Simulated scan of single mutants.
Amino acid sequence: MDADDLWPDNKLERQLTRLADDPSVEIVMGLTQFMRLTAGQPQFEPFQKPQLFLNFGSAVFRKSVFDQMGLFDETMAHSEDIDWLLRARENGVSMLILNDVTLFYRIHSSNMSQDKSARHFFFIKALKQSLDRRRQHKKTVKHFSDYQQSHKQN
């Protein structure tokens, strides 16, 4: 999780309960609520609707997934979590995406991701690597929305 992002109350409880309830699930993700400073306001305010955003801060993982998948690609200065999650999906890692916010992603002028050209370069690199692997192995993968729950959990 990035140092400037926040978790909502009960995030871990909700996600860990889902891991405990279903031993076949290896990753439980949630939605991300983007937050930004509003002019003249001292606090972050939500904007846009919560959405699926591939970010490690929105998820919890079984240790066994890292044993299976390995760690981040250290050549990725940005989007290393996207690259890792795409690899996990390609390898059939069982995921569940809650329709609850599990990460408040705070946007401000000091974010590392403010470098749009680098951010876009590494995002496209992660997508291209995923496409290349799938073409090479003739794999099809589920769309991330196929992992989402059909209703909101309490």
Rank of each mutant, 00 (worst) to 15 (best):
F122E: 06
K138M: 07
Q68A: 05
M95G: 14
Q68T: 11
N91T: 12
Q129R: 02
H78M: 15
R87K: 09
L71M: 07
S58A: 02
V101H: 03
G70Y: 14
F122R: 02
S58G: 03
F56N: 15
E74D: 14
L71S: 11
N111M: 01
Q136E: 07
L98D: 08
V101A: 05
R133T: 11
E80R: 09
R135E: 09
K49P: 03
S130K: 02
F122C: 10
R135P: 06
F56I: 13
D73Q: 09
M112G: 08
S117M: 02
R134W: 06
S58Y: 00
L85H: 05
S58K: 00
K138R: 07
V101F: 10
F56P: 15
D132F: 09
I82W: 13
Q51Y: 09
Q48R: 07
R134S: 13
L71W: 08
H108R: 06
F61H: 00
E80P: 00
Q129V: 01
D115M: 10
V65E: 00
K49D: 07
K116E: 11
L86C: 13
S117A: 07
D73I: 15
R106A: 09
D83F: 01
Q48H: 01
V60C: 01
M69Q: 12
F47D: 02
E80I: 00
K128Q: 09
T75Y: 02
R89L: 08
Q51K: 08
V60I: 00
K139H: 02
D115T: 10
Q129M: 00
D83T: 00
T102L: 10
M76G: 12
K125P: 07
Y105S: 06
R62F: 13
L98M: 14
L86W: 15
Q129I: 04
G57Q: 01
L54F: 15
R106N: 06
F122L: 07
A88T: 04
A118W: 14
Q114S: 14
I82F: 15
S130E: 00
M69K: 12
S94T: 14
M76N: 12
F72T: 15
E90S: 06
F66H: 07
S79M: 12
S130F: 07
E74Q: 11
H137R: 00
I97E: 02
T75N: 01
Q51F: 13
A59P: 14
I107R: 05
